[in-house]
Design a protein around this nucleic acid. Structure first.
Length: 270
DNA sequence: CTCCAGGCTG
DNA sequence: CAGCCCGGAG
């Protein structure tokens, strides 16, 4: 794995740490999944926070831990109930994958959320970011966590090219982590990054671009899920009457393929 | 229009 | 690699 070597003087890192930590002392966000010492809370929040702002996640998270207070209760849940509770957050596949992960962790890991990158990476819906963030936030493990916030903070602080790959950022990110303070440090970086001026954010765009939502295929999918939650189950005719869109049947087919929706005789349900 | 504690599939 | 997955706020 080839990575660009970034020469950064130790003194610069010391200054950087002080800047971030003193800022954090004044502007720390109080979030319900922080400092609870509960890895399950971290797991739930990280799934919910994928491409979704903190403010939007908050009420969903609180509702979630009320209904599914621990991993075991989630592992015993019905998929339809999980989708209904998730509805409104977006990217419904995350809910399916979260539930699948809960089942796998209960059955294969004694209901203990794994603390190492490689084990986590194998779970559905957990990629490079989450395989790092869970060890860091839930177990205070020292490893680089790079989301869009931290990425921008590092690029801005050390004057790096805006399109630098995350892999090239990792050695620097690792060397910045204060000893035994991984969880706090990454929380601080994220709060700092989230608070950065929009002009700075726009000057360091994400590595990938989102496709439009309005008029998109997935907008139709979202409507189908919402209707099935409301009505319990619906026929194709019923769906067509409620959703006047030429792409309805194809959207339904895709949802069936992904097992977000099931066909029961002549009706569809979650 | 763009943003967001990303990840999966082809 | 590109394209796709949801949805509300700025």
């Amino acid at each position: 794995m080839e990575t660009i070597c970034i020469p950064v003087p130790l003194a610069a890192i010391t200054i950087f740490r002080k800047k971030i930590l003193s800022w954090y002392k004044l502007h720390k966000r109080v979030l319900p999944w922080r400092d609870t010492g509960n890895p399950y809370h971290v797991l739930i929040s990280e799934y919910m926070l994928q491409q979704t702002q903190v403010a939007r996640v908050m009420p969903f998270f609180l509702r979630w831990i009320e209904k599914y207070p621990d991993l075991t209760s989630l592992a015993k849940s019905k998929q339809g109930d999980v989708l209904a509770l998730w509805n409104g957050l977006g990217y419904n596949s995350r809910a399916i994958r979260l539930r699948e992960s809960a089942i796998k962790i209960v059955n294969g890991h004694n209901a203990i959320i794994p603390s190492d990158y490689n084990t986590l990476k194998k779970l559905p819906g957990i990629g490079d970011y989450m395989a790092s963030s869970i060890p860091a936030f839930a177990y205070n493990k020292t490893l680089p966590v790079i989301d869009i916030n931290i990425r921008r903070v590092l690029i801005a602080e050390f004057q790096l090219p805006p399109d630098i790959p995350n892999e090239s950022l990792k050695p620097l990110a690792l060397s910045c982590i204060p000893k035994n303070k991984s969880a706090m440090w990454h929380n601080a970086l994220m709060d700092y990054g989230a608070a950065m001026a929009m002009t700075v954010k726009k000057s360091i765009p994400p590595l990938t671009k989102q496709s439009r939502f309005t008029g998109s295929f997935r907008q139709v999918r979202g409507k189908i899920i919402k209707l099935l939650i409301e009505k319990g189950k619906m026929s194709l005719n019923g769906l067509q009457a409620s959703i006047n869109d030429a792409r309805l049947e194809k959207a339904l087919e895709a949802l069936l393929d992904e097992k977000l929706v099931f066909r029961k005789g002549t009706t569809y349900r979650l």
